[in-house]
Each structure stands twice: as C-alpha cells, then as structure tokens.
Amino acid sequence: MHDLAFGARVRGVRVRLGMRQVDVATRSGLSTSTVSRIERGHLGSLTIDALRSVAKALEIRVDLVPRWRGGDLDRLVNANHSRLAQACIERLRAAGPWEVKPEVSFSIYGERGAIDLLAWHPQRRALLVIELKTAIIDVGELLATLDRKARLADQIGSRFGWVADHVSVALVVADGRTNRRRVASHIDVFRSALPLDGRRLGGWLRRPTGRAAMLAFMPDSHARTLGQPLAVRQRVRGPRAAARRGDPCTKPGVR
C-alpha cells in the first residue's frame, strides 16, 4: 500500500470514530505531530512501532507484507522448507523402517490444518508428528499448534491404517544464530514442552519406545548437501610461506 493511501485510511477511521489527532496521540503515546505526519502519508522517517501504535489506538490491524521480485520470495521460502523436510525424511529413513507422509492435511470437528511430516514406525507402532520451522516467530502459537496436532494424530494416522501405541512430537528448526537466540530467550518454555534435545533424537529414532517430545536443530550444511555439493575451501599459501615449507616453485631459477 502506498504511504498516502495508508495515511488516508488512518485519517478516515479517526474521523469515523469521532476522535481528534490529540486523542489518538494520547492513546498511542506519540506526539500529535507524529499522528499528523502519518495521516499525511509522510512515513519515511517513522518506525514500524510508531505506525502500529497509532493503528492500535484506532483498532486497525497492520500486516507487514514483504515483497521481492514478484513470486520469487514465496518460492524461496518454500524451497527452504522443502530442503528442511527432505533432510528430515532422509534422517528418518536412515534411522529405521520409518514410513513418512509429508503435508498431511486434516479437518476434524472443525479443527483444520496440516502436519508437515507424519511418520510411522510399524515395528514399534510409534507415530511421530514433526513440525518444521525455518524461522521461529510466535512461540506460544507454535507450541499450541504442535500440541493440537499431537492430540489429533491418532485419528489422522488411522486414515493410513496406523494404530499407534504412543504418539510423539518433534519440532525441527533450521539451524542459525537468529533461531538459536529465539529458542534461548524462551528456553524454559521449550524445555517444559519439548524436554528432549537433538542429541537424543538419533537414539530415539532408532529405538522409538514410549512417548517423546523433542526439539532439534537441523544444520544448514545438512540441508545444502541435499541439493548441491558444498564448496571445498582451499588454503592459498603466499610465496614466503611456501618457501619456508620448501616449495620448489619458490627456489631461485625455478619457474
């Protein structure tokens, strides 16, 4: 949306509610001049927090929608998610006779959604719900969604003839500094909901006995190797270092 159009909508709602600019400023904790600048579409030097504060004062919801090269951004995000899913599938199949169903949609008693990966271990009669995240945004919503999927997993699995003795859950997050910081800042919440970490995930996948709730990071290098080989770094020695090591190409008269 263009800045002028955004400002016009803010002003329109304010007038409809019978509020003055000073009233909006008081509710939002900003100055009257800032409210005026927003209504005139002068948004260039304002923060997103300021825009949201004014919008909240007027009960307007503001959604931030990034756009990049047409549909390329959606394809990029989907590609990252797909690589993460493929890495998980390969790890499951390497650990044992897991059967995996990707993107399993459901609609049960009005509850709708999709499970990223639903895995079944026939020998142990173990059902595993895997939630994949390339980025962690809302921790509360994430854990509530995972809990809901685990609660419905028995009914969802029965569609494939899978009758489980126990249902486990795993949150698999793309490794990276930002995601690790997000987890660290909510570590008590995550440990309470998902007490097992990635170091114990491999052992459980090989012998899935009993219910488990796990959080694991999937390294970027693991995902990259699925699509293309990693570049091999080579050390380039300078002429002095080579001479010290007795490199014949650095000796006088040798070219």
Rank of each mutant, 00 (worst) to 15 (best):
D3A: 14
L4G: 08
L4I: 13
A5S: 14
A5V: 11
R9Q: 12
V10H: 01
V13H: 04
R14L: 10
L17H: 13
L17W: 04
M19F: 12
Q21C: 13
V24Q: 02
S28I: 07
S28K: 07
G29C: 04
L30P: 04
S31N: 04
S31T: 15
T32H: 13
T34D: 01
T34C: 12
R37P: 06
R37L: 11
I38S: 02
E39P: 02
H42E: 15
H42A: 13
G44R: 11
S45V: 11
T47I: 07
T47F: 07
A50V: 07
L51Q: 07
A55V: 04
A57S: 15
A57G: 15
W68Q: 13
G70F: 10
G70C: 10
G71M: 10
G71R: 15
G71E: 14
D74S: 15
R75L: 02
L76E: 03
V77R: 04
A79M: 10
N80K: 13
N80R: 15
N80S: 07
N80G: 06
A85E: 02
A87E: 00
A87D: 00
A87L: 00
R91M: 00
R93K: 15
A95Q: 13
P97G: 09
P97K: 06
W98Q: 00
V100Q: 07
P102G: 06
P102Q: 04
V104H: 01
F106K: 03
F106L: 09
Y109I: 09
G113F: 05
G113I: 05
L117T: 03
A119F: 03
V129D: 02
I130A: 01
T134D: 09
V139D: 01
V139K: 03
G140K: 06
E141P: 05
L142I: 13
L143F: 05
L146A: 13
D147C: 08
L152W: 03
R159V: 08
W162R: 04
A164W: 01
A164D: 04
V167C: 04
L171M: 09
V172D: 00
V173N: 00
R180H: 07
R181T: 15
R181W: 11
S185P: 04
H186R: 14
V189K: 02
S192N: 13
S192C: 09
S192I: 06
A193L: 05
L194T: 10
G198V: 02
R199N: 14
R199P: 05
R200M: 10
W204V: 12
L205Q: 03
R207W: 11
T209P: 06
G210H: 12
R211C: 11
R211L: 08
R211T: 15
A212C: 11
A213Y: 08
M214P: 03
M218N: 02
D220T: 09
D220L: 13
S221I: 15
S221C: 10
H222M: 11
H222F: 13
T225K: 08
T225P: 05
P229E: 06
V232L: 12
R237L: 15
P239N: 10
P239T: 13
P239L: 09
R240Q: 14
A242M: 12
A243R: 08
G246D: 08
G246K: 05
D247W: 08
T250Q: 14
K251Y: 13
P252K: 14
G253W: 06
R255M: 09
